[in-house]
Simulated scan of single mutants.
Amino acid sequence: MANSYPAEKKPVTFGLVAGEASGDNLGAPLIRELKRYYPDAHFVGVGGPAMIAEGMDSWFDMDRLSVNGFIDPIKRLPELLNILLTVRSRLLKTPPICFVGIDFNFFNLLLEGMLKRQGIRTVHYVSPTVWAWRPGRIKAIARNVDLMLTLYPFETDVYVENGIDVAFVGHPKAYDIELHDGSDKKAAARQMLAYGDEDPIVAILPGSRRSEVAYSGPDFLAAAGLIKNVVPGCRFLVAAANDHLASKINGLLLESGHELDIKVVVGQSREVLTAADVVLVNSGTATLEAMLLKKPMVMSYRLGSATYAIVSRLVKTKYFALPNILAGHELVPELIQEDATPEALCKAVLALFDPQTRDSLVSKFTTIHRQLRVEKHEAAKAIQILCGEHPGGGDVSA
């Protein structure tokens, strides 16, 4: 029996899978923007509370997909395989107009391949770091993905070179953080953390993993001990991802014997960064957030010697800090492995207290911030172009 909807108003279904909180945070605004193109659309698959709040029908609790390390995925392989095959079966039974895998690369790329072979359009949202390491993955991506959505503009090149449709859609943090939040909200962040407007403050972000804190924490704290001897009244704020890491950091502080005006703050890295004058940070997305808040920073990273020997041979990118990768040249000092001595960290941090240096960095960081703030609906627009259907009725002009 023919359905009663006019052709241009036919309701559509989108399949989506997010496997962790970061993907859920990307998926929710994507659903919201897709509704502007497809007002009557249904959204099914696996998502977290933010996506569910936008009306998604999540077939599984997203936390069931959450795995860490190497051993946990192996132990939970039967459960993960069951979820993978169940999602595939349900999507093939009632095919969506498109499937969007949000990050969660191994699971979603497998699922995307299964669906694409059955004629379902596939989109992968958040590029795997093929530009940095394991470039051979591009062949599997070409087989499994119809459209790649990237968060950073430089990521598109490798897909264009390999004939894969790609769209740069901007980074959500570039919208979440306004252009002048780092200065406009600085006084309030300091007040909340019980510091004054004139206090010189260095933020320390030693990492979100226990191993990162173990390797970089001692060097960062030793550098703080040297900095306080040069910068009178310098205060230090350490951002800890959770109570467990806070305990680890406090233990390292006791072991170090350094007498510092220091506060360990749990779960408030944004406030810690906003309050700071200069940031000493482990590599990772924290460098992006520091840049978006226009904070001069020194990036440092340490690994175990054996791990570093392997990783350094696999990584193909010239830089590790996202601001440097985005700029295409060094804006942020990078002190890696044996170069990450307390003395070198101290020297690099002290240089960033120079007003001219800081003003120059703020200007360059602002330029990059603007580049990452494309129109909010770019991801949904790229998907609509891929799907080639527009039921109409949605307001996509705002």
Rank of each mutant, 00 (worst) to 15 (best):
S127I: 04
K364G: 11
E212T: 03
N68S: 11
E271I: 02
E79G: 06
S312W: 03
L221P: 02
K139C: 04
P135V: 03
P96I: 02
N144L: 04
E112F: 05
K316V: 00
L326P: 07
F154G: 15
F168S: 13
E8S: 03
A241I: 13
E54Y: 13
D354Q: 12
L386D: 13
R117T: 13
S283G: 13
E20T: 00
G217A: 11
E8W: 07
A188K: 10
V213W: 09
Y159V: 14
L331H: 07
P29K: 04
P218L: 02
L80S: 12
G48L: 00
R137W: 00
M297W: 12
I74V: 14
L352E: 10
M1S: 07
L65W: 10
A167T: 15
E161K: 15
I31D: 07
V12C: 07
S397H: 12
K116G: 00
D103G: 06
S208K: 08
A28S: 09
G113P: 01
L352M: 09
Q371C: 11
V311Q: 02
T366V: 07
A290G: 15
Y152K: 04
R88K: 11
T285R: 11
A306K: 12
A239D: 06
D165E: 15
L16G: 05
G388T: 10
P49F: 05
T122Q: 11
A306D: 03
I31K: 08
S283Q: 04
Y125E: 01
P296L: 10
K263E: 08
L109F: 00
T317E: 06
P218R: 05
A194H: 13
T287C: 09
I336K: 03
L292T: 14
Y125Q: 02
N108H: 03
F236D: 00
K10G: 01
C346K: 14
A224N: 01
L352R: 14
C346E: 08
P11N: 06
E255L: 08
M51G: 11
V130Q: 03
Y5C: 13
N25D: 06
L361N: 12
P153C: 01
L115I: 06
A240W: 01
R117V: 02
E8T: 11
T150P: 01
L91I: 02
E259S: 10
V44R: 14
D146H: 14
